[in-house]
Design a binder for these strands. Structure first.
Lengths: 255, 255
DNA sequence: TAGTGGTCTAGACCACCCC
DNA sequence: GGGTGGTCTAGACCACTAG
């Protein structure tokens, strides 16, 4: 007995082995994005999917759980599994670079690098990055652009491997600090802790963002953690009011 | 062969049947909160836990997945499963009432109800709540307090079941709109879509929050969806800069 | 190489929704 | 009652990490 066509084709693909349930999740996601199943319409029952794609029901369920966690599907006990409304599907937020996030929203991301300094950590920065004061850190200040218009300021402090440095050229090439972390320093940003509030633009902020001083800005502070849950970046972002920060939050805390 | 003590005790408890994996998750969460296993220290291997608690390894894994989604644990392939740092464990955000959220942060929640109107939905409100214009809605305006100090304004539009009404007395008793939705209208808020930005306080805002007009405020708009993914509430919240909005975001979007 | 988490299976039974 | 998702099992094998 052989596996259903489309999944088998993927299996023979470049990657040596993507798990079955991820392949199924991709297949389902694609068929949902293409509109084959409408909002709030049901998927075939798990048992049917298992037969169709020649896998166990448990594997089908894993695919459904994955898509559920991404806001693509939702299941109701006794009723069925349904396609989430588009409004939900497009709200999911992930730990993502500004670059990728902007592209996902349909904008053209850009940046103007204001400065890259190799410096010693202040007590505050050292504390939040879990290092000793005066340890070396890299500070990167940037203006973020969408479609060539400034939308926000980013002030990042990076903890680099011992002796490593970061050049303006490297950053200009990729445009994304996260890509550099992954590709050059083999550090995968895995989790982010964010704290959001509102502040008034300082004179400096105002000049860079081309608004008046005192304009309300969205202040977002973030600590980024590696796979081992070590802090690797602290970043302060200030965004114009036109920039909207979207999130989906799920379920009930007793879960 | 009988089940390990603590889990069995729970099983005999009030609730007729909480699933095994949730019981194990509760047990593990408790023992983590109590500090029996420190930050970034490993749990016993899944196979050991399965033997200890007399359940299958798959059931143990379900408990671990649940805690992982709540930011309590993280697993690394080939290394083990570890307790997340406290900073992560305390950042998880859920679709929660202001009331519950404030308590979780260690504050005393309060509210001053400014008005409760039964009115007809504007086109904008009707559109976002997925109803016809002029359909009946309830608008609730409140000042939110933490430790008796005003921290924000909430302006909620509720879609109630046909013919239902909402009295000030009911809302004053529970203090929480969500509790009323659940208890009185059998509607469980399941998912929220939020959009956050910054605004300047209007003269009215300023008076209610006891600050100067023009003060930057955090503006958070939210659409709350029911289990069936029908919109049940639209809410605009404006918070003082001192109020911080905390989130944990996970993993990589390619997941 | 030994030990860990990750995937997958085939089958059983329960809980819930709706007709 | 018939169909759906939810839970649980026992066992197999793979993939990754570390000493």
């Amino acid at each position: 007995m052989t596996r259903s066509t489309s999944i088998d084709a993927r299996r023979a693909d470049a990657k040596p082995s993507v798990s079955l349930y991820r392949q199924l999740a991709d297949t389902l996601r694609t068929s949902i994005e293409s509109g084959k199943i409408g909002e709030n319409e049901p998927l075939p029952p798990e048992r049917d999917l298992a037969v169709s794609y020649d896998m166990s029901r448990d594997t089908v369920r894993k695919a459904i759980r994955l898509l559920e966690s991404q806001g693509v599907l939702y299941s109701d006990h006794g009723r069925g599994t349904f396609v989430a409304p588009q409004s939900v599907r497009h709200m999911s937020r992930f730990l993502d670079s500004f670059t990728a996030d902007t592209i996902r929203r349909g904008g053209v991301p850009g940046q103007k690098i204001l400065s890259i300094e190799h410096t010693a950590a202040s007590m505050a920065i050292a504390s939040i990055l879990g290092m000793d004061p005066h340890s070396p850190v890299v500070r990167v200040r940037r203006v973020r652009l969408v479609n060539d218009q400034p939308v926000g300021l980013q002030d990042s402090y990076l903890r680099l491997p011992f002796g490593a440095t970061l050049s303006r050229k490297e950053l200009e090439r990729t445009g994304s600090l996260y890509r550099l972390l992954i590709d050059k320093f083999a550090t995968v940003p895995t989790e982010g802790l964010e704290s959001v509030s509102a502040v008034a633009a300082t004179a400096d902020d105002a000049a860079l963002l081309r608004v008046e001083a005192g304009t309300p800005l969205l202040l977002c502070e973030r600590v980024t953690l590696s796979e081992r849950r070590e802090p690797v970046e602290y970043c302060e972002m200030k965004y114009l009011p036109s920039y909207r920060y979207k999130t989906r939050i799920s379920k009930w805390s007793s879960d």
